[in-house]
């Protein structure tokens, strides 16, 4: 199977002695769903944000969608990666001054140089996939959190990415709004989208993930299938973490 992310010995230090990423080496395969778990401050957000150049690293090598990235962070390579990798944030980060439709068509028009008609047609298709066509002309502040996050997913899909990154996509939602977002992600996974998801949703990880990556203090502790991870984790730290979130 061919890989879509390959990380070799990634290291990132914040302050002296403290490492956000401590010698991370890993591979994400095409059409795989990888769930990243770990206590807060373990470096899981930092890791996923290095995948599209939002975070820098001090040493090591990264290869995402076939584009290499080194610690010098070549701007052109980062742009090339971002054109093929979508990202969904915890706080949605929709553009509040633009309508839902304008949020989605901005990048296709400016990056891929599509005409407005082409971009809008594709945007409406994505919105219907997310079940929110009625909201196309509204503004982000008029939507519920769950709807906003689904718009953010549609926006991330607008460039037809090869990989989607999710940074705690349901952590800022009201509990009753979590499932509509997880359902949308589940559908994407079924269609074969490659996804890396930082989340605390154990149910989602059990059901959808192909593999689970567990991090603690910047280190990759273990990377295994959800079956093994949730029932028979090898490492003491993984078991301790699972005990805490199940309480």
């Amino acid at each position: 199977m061919s890989h879509i992310i390959r990380a070799n010995n990634l290291v990132k230090s914040f302050t002296k002695g403290l490492r956000a990423l401590d010698d991370i080496s890993m591979v994400v395969n095409k059409q795989e769903v990888l769930v990243v778990m770990g206590p807060s401050g373990s470096g899981k957000s930092t890791l996923i944000r290095t995948f599209n150049g939002l975070e820098t690293f001090d040493s090591g090598k990264l290869e995402v969608v076939g584009v290499p990235l080194y610690s010098n962070h070549d701007e052109r390579n980062i742009r090339a990666i971002r054109r093929k990798v979508g990202m969904v944030f915890q706080q949605f980060n929709l553009f509040p001054h633009l309508s839902i439709l304008e949020n989605i068509i901005l990048a296709p028009m400016k990056v891929q140089k599509l005409t407005r008609i082409e971009a809008e047609e594709h945007a409406m298709h994505l919105l219907s996939q997310m079940g929110i066509t009625k909201q196309a002309r509204k503004y982000p502040s008029q939507l519920s959190g769950g709807e906003q996050q689904r718009v953010a997913i549609a926006r991330a899909l607008a460039l037809k990415p090869e990989l989607l990154l999710f940074d705690e996509p349901t952590s800022a939602l009201d509990p009753e709004r979590v499932n509509e977002v997880l359902d949308a992600m589940r559908t994407l996974a079924q269609k074969g989208m490659t996804m890396v998801v930082v989340t605390h949703e154990v149910g989602f990880a059990r059901e959808v993930a192909d593999r689970v990556l567990f991090m603690d203090s910047g280190k990759l502790i273990e990377m295994t299938t959800p079956d093994i991870f949730f029932s028979n984790a090898k490492h003491e730290r993984s078991r301790k973490f699972l005990n805490q979130i199940e309480k």
């Binding site: 742009r79 971002r82 980060n93 553009f95 460039l159």
Partner: peptide, 27 residues
């Protein structure tokens, strides 16, 4: 303007000057 708005337009592959004009300045 919040940091997240910069990250959002950068993640979409938009160039800095376009993001500044279309996303940051209006806010």
């Amino acid at each position: 303007v919040s940091r997240g708005q910069w990250e959002a337009f950068r993640s979409l592959g938009l160039a800095e000057n376009i993001g500044l004009i279309k996303v940051i300045m209006p806010q």
